[in-house]
Design a protein around this nucleic acid. Structure first.
Lengths: 341, 341
DNA sequence: TATTAGCACTCTTTGATAGTGAGTGCTAAC
DNA sequence: GTTAGCACTCACTATCAAAGAGTGCTAATA
């Protein structure tokens, strides 16, 4: 369904203007601000058509028009001019991420989240690498004192998990080594998702004599790996107060309540295979986010997509700016993660 | 400066009523609701006195009275009846914390934070154990692959730090063990605060031959220990919307902005030696928190005070309830931490 | 001397009313 | 197909009056 050039131009003007001003856009504004050699009356007719087609909405009879979710969607798909970061922004991004290079991945992710929220001026969320999708690279059991050992799992997604385990009795070094070796032999290169009871049983079988010790170690280790799949980091939650839609205390409250529900957020931001995805208003599967737009990109550790990085805000979001910045940051993040891990 | 029984009773009634209703309290309300056999006119006189003494304030001439910071202080110090948790609350607290027993300390802390915010209905903050104050119990260097080793530091406050270290060249097992032993010998039982350059230099001296390797390991390890002292966990940030003082969008924004500044928050909640401390309004050293009250308690791991657990909210806070719950939760938390670590 | 009834006064809150202005839809002329 | 013109709608703002809650003061009372 093609709208024709003039309608497209008008729709783009309305969306751009509304994103900029947050005020319903009237026909006169369009005529004056975006010189197009037609009168406001003509624009009014076009706007009425666009409303009938579902791209625009009218808050009340005597107000200007506001883009509908469908209007934003058309804008993002067909009309948008993506804005690259300004030189200053690009410099800042490179600068901040560069210093992160030496850090651990958690640190890099935290910094990236903060950076993303500061540059976009929206709320940023980053999902840490999924443990499920991570493959075990190495497991180490380390004696801390007579009755405590520490189990450390290093994965190929730079996720490191450790858990302190209490033993029922002393354990000699050789036994610990033996168990350690067996765990590595059986679990190495399996993703956490692939580790199931049959694998566990295999280990128990092969080390039949150590039942008591294994019974202390394996369940705790198993739980520690399976219990949490990923964390979500949030920054810039109060950025929403910059936008007039959240001057309404209830809107603000709903938005912030959504941000407090980590499971919902993880669900919203979880990767679905697309590299860069924009979800607008009611397009969001999640009901609580139907007033919001979400823009997210995936990032990789070692050629494997492991997490997402994104922005959440009002449907009146500055899509062209956020998409440009998000792409840029995701690319830079991927470079760093490719080189360091 | 003693107020006399009647003034004290009236002050208590006003504070209690204001905490309950959030409305300025008038003389008639006191006379009717808190039967005391005196007329509203008498109460009016007493209230005028209390205002002159600085315990009460009047939003405007024709309104009732509201407690001042000084009034709340007197209330908390002399008048309060601390409410113990209800049986249901006590049951819930024990229930939630009990299941945390097997977990790692981070997990326990997160659960406790959430619990505290849910039971009090305010915003809860918990500071994780201070790394500075933690003493090194054991350091382990573990080979992950040819060029990567993982350094793990276990401390006496249940804090475990790990950091991945890239080596400039391969390292043989004996060398690693030697370095590992030296690190343990020199650093064990030192608090992180006590580890300084002179200690580091001592290690470098004793292992003169391994300069290149040590130069890869020590700075990264040192940074990892020194860079972050503690984390702060927050829960129930949107609880403030339950209280009418935050119906004003600016008040809400200021409060939430404060919560976003982690350093400030850590500063506010940091332990100053007192077991249970209430800071009311302007008593807070921190300017940004001068509209808030903070109630916090310290908690221990292994007989050492290591962190704090607390609540932040409006000065019109339900002190008697929060203090009761906070004490109860802190006691239970201490029990668990004493038994598990 | 302490308490209280009574009353004038203050100040916020609420609701009603009218005016203003931005923007529309429709009609008729170009 | 485009546009000028105009009546109409509806949110927003200011103004005003009335209501209500609560006070402080004064004079009477126990």
């Amino acid at each position: 369904m093609d709208l024709g050039e003039r309608k497209r131009y008008i729709l783009k003007a309305i969306v751009d203007d509304y994103i900029e001003t947050a005020e319903p856009v009237g026909s006169r504004t369009i005529a004056k601000k975006y010189e197009m050699g037609i009168s406001s009356a003509t624009i009014r007719n076009e706007m009425a058509d666009l409303e009938e087609l579902g791209y625009l909405e009218q808050p009340h009879t005597s107000a200007g028009r506001v883009p509908s979710d469908k209007g934003y969607r058309y804008y993002v798909d067909k009309l948008i001019n993506i804005k690259d970061p300004t030189p200053e922004e690009a410099f800042e991004i490179k600068n901040i991420l560069q210093f992160a290079t030496i850090c651990e991945i958690d640190n890099i992710i935290k910094r990236t989240t903060k950076l993303l929220s500061e540059v976009t001026r929206y709320t940023a969320a980053v999902l840490s690498p999924s443990v499920k999708k991570s493959a075990v690279k190495s497991i180490q059991l380390v004696q801390v004192n007579d009755y405590d050992i520490l189990a450390i799992v290093v994965t190929d997604t730079a996720v490191i998990k450790h858990v302190l385990i209490k033993l029922p009795r002393r354990i000699d070094y050789d036994t610990l080594l033996k168990i350690n070796n067996m765990l590595n032999e059986k679990l190495r290169n399996l993703t956490v998702e692939q580790i199931d009871l049959s694998v566990i049983n295999q280990i128990l079988m092969e080390l039949r004599g150590y039942y008591e010790i294994l019974n202390a170690i394996i369940p705790v280790l198993y739980d520690s790996l399976k219990s949490v799949d990923c964390d979500i980091y949030l920054e810039g939650t109060t950025n929403i107060f910059k936008y007039p839609e959240y001057n309404d205390i209830n809107k603000a409250k709903n938005f912030l309540s959504l941000l407090e529900r980590k499971e919902t957020l993880i669900d919203i931001f979880s990767d679905d295979g697309e590299n860069l995805k924009v979800s607008i208003g009611k397009e969001n599967n999640n009901d609580e986010a139907r007033d919001c737009s979400i823009i997210r990109a995936s990032y990789m550790v070692g050629n494997k997509v492991v997490g997402t990085i994104g922005v959440i805000g009002p449907t009146r979001m500055d899509y062209s700016k956020v998409i440009g910045i998000l792409k840029f940051i995701a690319d830079n993040l991927n470079d760093i993660l490719r080189n360091s891990f």
